[in-house]
Design a protein around this nucleic acid. Structure first.
Lengths: 352, 352
DNA sequence: TGTTAGCACTCCAAGCAGTCGAGTGCTAAC
DNA sequence: GTTAGCACTCGACTGCTTGGAGTGCTAACA
């Protein structure tokens, strides 16, 4: 059997209709509403074919048809009319996104809220593990004679801090000297090369000089702790309650499973960060993801990158019966906006 | 009519029973299960009295009784058996709470997760607006010749940063001098007194010296921005999906309303921060709070303080039919643990 | 006077039969 | 190849019945 033009148009009509109503779609309805110039009987025959081919399914005999995962896949890849955002929508995005923010985490959190409000689905954003690899600056602040705050600023603008407990008391000048040394050795290094740089620094500069070596080593540990904090992914959720608006989540058990999986965060974070790292918007439909609890959901996501670096992922999760066209274009647009903002942050860094 | 001992015991039994089963409680059941030495008929009479007095209500004629808000209030204040945590529970708290954390925000986030896992309700934690008032240290890091990172560390260990855009280019020594001046003027100041201190500093030191004054003023703005960030309350939620386990939230509409109110955060944050500031554990039952959407919920909360300072609030929100005894003792205990941790953080500060 | 057994009454929840309507598949005619 | 028509299926809804849990009231009892 062949998937000719007519079948495709019928499939398209069915998916559109189902996305709209959440009710199984009947042949009569398609014949009437969509001007295909065909009778319901003909459409009935075609629908039977489409079911044989695996694009449609029937919840029970004598009910209308519902798209299968394969049907949605074809729809997303080929059939759906990709549309640009309207002017109003672009304006809404601009209003929701607070671009005055200059810190990565806050920017992403804000994007999360914007996406969920614009799409009415649940928004997920994720800072990529290990995305923040360059050290831009290190500073120390003395708390008391035995404790030092170590502050690390990454190239993407994230600031993390850690407390170093010193094995000996240290006066201001000593700390300043050691800090300068630290700065000298770690700035510009990526996370991977840092450990080696620090170790060789300690070896070269302090061979044998016990106390200073121990202090330096405590400071180095603090720097590494900061990088570890940066390296650990953060996930933001927004609009989780939205899922309860959809009839497929009337079933309280299903809703709870969904919310629990989101709350747990780890599985979704793994799922998202395991996806391909290109800049395209990706759509994962139903069973295409490996998490049982969200096999009835689809995920639309994109990674945002600046230069060659992957900074994170933004996405939308909702019922398979999702307004793909609207969601994909929204994600695409927001992704672009964020990428350009990140670009600005990064280029600000290059000047210095 | 008088609320004699027998009525109290019957009310206590009914509330206990209802908390357990979520089903209206009948006289026969109480007569059988609780050894009061009374027949169901007698208990029936007493229940009618308790209803007249407003402690009980009947969902419909010929159904069992359900506690009213007034009934719960009496139960919480007088009737419930306050219990200490068991050894196992104490151990569970200690395991869940990660006390190695030395940053306020992270500590609270962690407490949120612990509370929700231990109580099986939804946990809310809140950092108090304006709680973080003392400046402990200020540091600057140059990004490029026209941009400076300003880092402020508060007395409670929170670190915030802001970027100051300088009106003129500044070399390293100039920045160091201005930073020292800044440190000199702001350290030890509370949020309220800081503005004045900065302004007088600018006036005294730079009267007329245009460029330097402008730079200093940009730096001061950044410091104030950091304090603003610290001042804005943060709210953490954990275990929101738990609410769907309770039969009173089987109704999807009600569940959605609840989740939306939580997600919005503002109203709950206002509610919690508006409560009395003493150290006691507080219970807000049903209609005692002013938010319509959670009139069927109760909130158990406590503020955590160190010395005289209020740092925030931890709490549990769940159905009115809540295991008050368990929740109150858990909150009480966690509150104590956090307070003592905060005490350590603060005393670490005093040494310097 | 307080307590209790007994009874009539109420109301909800669950189960069941019947009806309606939407939708299908198949067949025969165009 | 398309379509009209028809028999059939199945879920959703309605109305009815039944059973059980629980009450309030009354009369008898200690």
């Amino acid at each position: 059997m062949q998937l000719d033009m007519r079948k495709r148009r019928i499939l398209q009509a069915i998916v559109n209709e189902y996305i709209d109503t959440a009710e199984p779609v009947g042949s009569r309805y398609i014949a009437k509403k969509h001007e295909l110039g065909l009778s319901s009987a003909t459409i009935r025959n075609e629908m039977a074919d489409l079911e044989d081919m695996g694009y449609l399914a029937q919840p029970h005999a004598s009910s209308g048809r519902v798209p299968s995962d394969k049907g949605y896949r074809l729809y997303v890849d080929d059939l759906m009319e990709t549309r640009l955002l309207t002017l109003d929508e672009v304006r809404a995005v601009t209003e929701e996104l607070d671009l005055k923010i200059n810190e990565l985490g806050a920017l992403i959190k804000n994007a999360s809220a914007a996406i969920s409000r614009l799409t009415k689905y649940t928004a997920v954003t994720l800072t990529t593990k290990g995305g923040d690899s360059g050290v831009k600056a290190v500073e120390t602040v003395s708390i008391d004679s035995a404790k030092v705050y170590v502050i690390v600023i990454s190239e993407s603008g994230t600031v993390k801090n850690s407390i170093a407990s010193l094995p000996v008391r240290l006066d201001k000048d000593d700390l300043a000297r050691l800090t300068a040394l630290l700065q000298n050795r770690v700035c510009g290094h990526s996370r991977e090369s840092l450990m080696g740089a620090l170790q060789s620094a300690i070896r070269e500069e302090f061979a044998g000089a016990g106390a200073a070596e121990a202090v330096m080593s405590a400071l180095a540990d603090a720097v590494i702790d900061c990088l570890r904090q940066m390296g650990s992914a953060e996930m933001f959720l927004e609009g989780t309650a939205n899922i309860l608006n959809f009839p497929e989540f009337r079933n309280i058990e299903r809703a709870r499973e969904f919310l629990e999986i989101l709350e747990e965060k780890k599985s979704i974070a793994n799922l998202l960060s395991g996806l391909a790292k290109d800049e395209r918007v990706r759509v994962l439909i139903g069973g295409e993801n490996q998490i049982d609890e969200i096999k009835e959901c689809s995920i639309v996501s994109a990674t945002y990158t600046a230069g060659n670096m992957v900074f994170g992922t933004i996405g939308v999760i909702g019922p398979k019966r999702m307004e793909y066209s609207k969601v994909v274009s929204t994600i695409e647009y927001i992704n672009k906006v964020i990428a350009s903002e990140l670009g600005k942050l990064a280029s600000g860094a290059d000047e210095g």
